[in-house]
């Protein structure tokens, strides 16, 4: 500590740090000891999660589906095959997730959405295990615990699906690249473009965002386009 600012700030107590330091890292630093069965997880899920996410985590009522799109083969390779197929609609949570720690950490800190931090440690283990079961990563007898979670990590369907080989992290910490991936030139005239309209909003969607006339100032160099008219017109 430096002493430039005497009297400002104080040491945190161990209980204070414990109350707030809840994050769980990919190497499971921060994970509290404990365990929860898939069966118990199903009870938690159906009581506290299914109303929003669907019985099988398939709902997109309040959010993208959590489960689906992964296969036992993905669990073997650690790459979700469907991510390669441009035709597959949408991506579920489980398709993207590389680190099981993230699931535990997030459920523990933020779910249920309307009552975050209300679950016990056992409930978090249990419901995390249940979601892994729905995604065919563990079987229905599984009891997820701090001692076997590292083994589960080795079966995460998309565990090999992430890369940090890009130039969008500002430092060198993640072994990325320094040179941006997309490289355009500052062409000033007769540039090699077709300049033909290739995509536009269909006319029937003109009013999908309401009456644009009401979304522009009624004075100035232009007006908003009237996209809705009274029924009478």
């Amino acid at each position: 500590q430096d002493n430039r600012f005497p009297g400002i700030g104080r040491n945190a107590t161990p209980a204070e740090v414990a109350a707030w330091d809840i994050d769980v890292r990919p190497d499971f630093k921060g994970l509290p000891p404990g365990a929860g069965s898939v069966a118990r997880g199903q009870e938690v899920w159906e009581a506290k999660c299914a109303s929003c996410h669907g019985v099988f985590g398939e709902s997109n009522q309040v959010f993208n589906p959590l489960i689906g799109g992964t296969s036992p083969d993905d669990a073997r390779t650690g790459r979700v095959q469907r991510l390669v197929e441009p035709g597959y609609p949408g991506r579920t949570t489980m398709m993207k997730l590389a680190t099981v720690s993230t699931l535990w950490d997030y459920i523990n800190r933020a779910m249920p959405w309307n009552a975050p931090k209300s679950l016990s440690v056992e409930e978090v283990y249990a419901v995390t295990g249940y979601m892994l079961h729905l995604a065919q990563v563990v079987d229905d007898k599984f009891v997820l615990s701090d001692r076997n979670i590292a083994d589960v990590q080795k079966r995460m369907p998309n565990r090999n699906g992430m890369t940090t080989k890009h130039a969008l992290w500002p430092g060198q910490e993640l072994g990325g690249t320094a040179r941006p991936d997309v490289r355009a030139a500052r062409c000033m005239s007769d540039c090699p473009v077709e300049a033909k309209v290739a995509s536009f909003l269909p006319d029937h969607a003109r009013d999908a965002h309401g009456n644009l006339a009401e979304q522009n100032r009624p004075v100035g160099p232009q007006r908003g386009v009237v996209t809705q008219r009274p029924v009478a017109a």
């Binding site: 104080r10 040491n11 107590t13 109350a19 309307n114 009552a115 975050p116 209300s118």
Partner: peptide, 22 residues
Amino acid sequence: PATAQPAGDPAILELPEHTRGL
């Protein structure tokens, strides 16, 4: 006062409503 009681500051130990709600 931000001084810690033996265990700590209630503003930290007792999670506020906004940390536990929507």
